[in-house]
Nucleic acid binder design. Sequence first.
DNA 1: AATAAAACTGACGGGTCAGTCATTATAAAA
DNA 2: TTTTATAATGACTGACCCGTCAGTTTTATT
Lengths: 221, 221
Amino acid sequence: MPKISDAQRETRRQQILAAALRCFSRDGFHNTTTADIVRESGVSQGTLYLYFTTKEDMVVALADDRHQSEAFLNALAQSEQDPVRGLLTLIELHGRGLTEPRRLDARRVGVQGWAESLRSPRIHASVVGGMALVREAIGQLIQRGQRTGQIRPEVDPDGVARTLIATFQGLVLQVAWGEPVDLHACGRTMRDMIGALLTDAGKLTLAASPAFDPPAEPSLD
Amino acid sequence: MPKISDAQRETRRQQILAAALRCFSRDGFHNTTTADIVRESGVSQGTLYLYFTTKEDMVVALADDRHQSEAFLNALAQSEQDPVRGLLTLIELHGRGLTEPRRLDARRVGVQGWAESLRSPRIHASVVGGMALVREAIGQLIQRGQRTGQIRPEVDPDGVARTLIATFQGLVLQVAWGEPVDLHACGRTMRDMIGALLTDAGKLTLAASPAFDPPAEPSLD
DNA sequence: AATAAAACTGACGGGTCAGTCATTATAAAA
DNA sequence: TTTTATAATGACTGACCCGTCAGTTTTATT
């Protein structure tokens, strides 16, 4: 008979993770001490280790959280009828996420995780696995587009998917560095990237898509 | 009356930097101790601090080295007569660099530096400054292309430059992670990106360019 | 109210590491 | 050969930090 419910336990866990996220974002993973997380979260040193076996555990948990929310975006884009619209939607959704102030810490910690995954197998697995989900989502949209004749058959789905993801990764970097990225301009360039994949029939679809530069609500600002 | 010449001093410095690069690549910046660099370089603990005032100094020096070699690629591309050819050359040169085994350590440490620049103003300045050089090189090529009528006038030079750089940054990441990146496919996608910027007159230039998929020597393998 | 199982606490131990400095080595000059 | 200024050394130190554990608190159950 445990004293706290699963919900309470999960709340505590999130309380610690949120504090860790703020610390990692502010000071970096290696310059954050467990004492910092204790201060920021309000739980005791010992409690930290009731919920996570090691500091690295927290990074992995944060990465997994991030990938879970990305999976949601993928599902949203897959639900589009038109695969080309789906691609544009995916780009738009991720584009919006690039500058959401709410996710500033997540982006900064995400970049840290990219570096950490060079030396930690666990973080590497998490990061690469998360990327694979997005890559497959994009690849499937492209294959659907090729089946409908909207996307040129000689396009390599995986190569394009990797390149699109690479572009977003780079933009995340630049935004995290505080660079004055003009996301409108970058969005246009990425729309052009998609446009270059299309057959003549597909170009009609692209022209008709309201996913970019909608009149009421600019998409990539 | 110094006991060693400037050349000797520079050699020692490079000896230390080369060792630091190997250590940082293998274990990451924060998991590399000065003792590791001592072991790898063969100099003593004290000598380290005759050449660098702090461990961070070494990271900055490595970043500056990297940017210097990138500046060389920029100059090479700028020397092309045709600006569109120049863009393709720039992409090809950086594309080749993506997989050169000789630069494996530099790429891995570069990714570390991207994360470090989130918390160290000095590294931030170095990394962002290095990127600005490449961005200006690309921006100038695009502006030249617009003056010659090869590139559509409504294209935003800086936005495209940022997006192209972002794509390369993402590919560097993925390659550093050991992902099986098909650089041929990514190269085709990036060529399409450039193609989407061109006017109809410019497309002739692109079609005639041997920069990609040359018969004898594949460019992005 | 008494009990007991689970959650929580925080001081502390064992270990690590960046940077220093008193000493030694080296080589050019006298 | 002696002198002297610079280079190199490596043992040392003071600070720091992760993870633990013996003891305390909380709360469901009896």
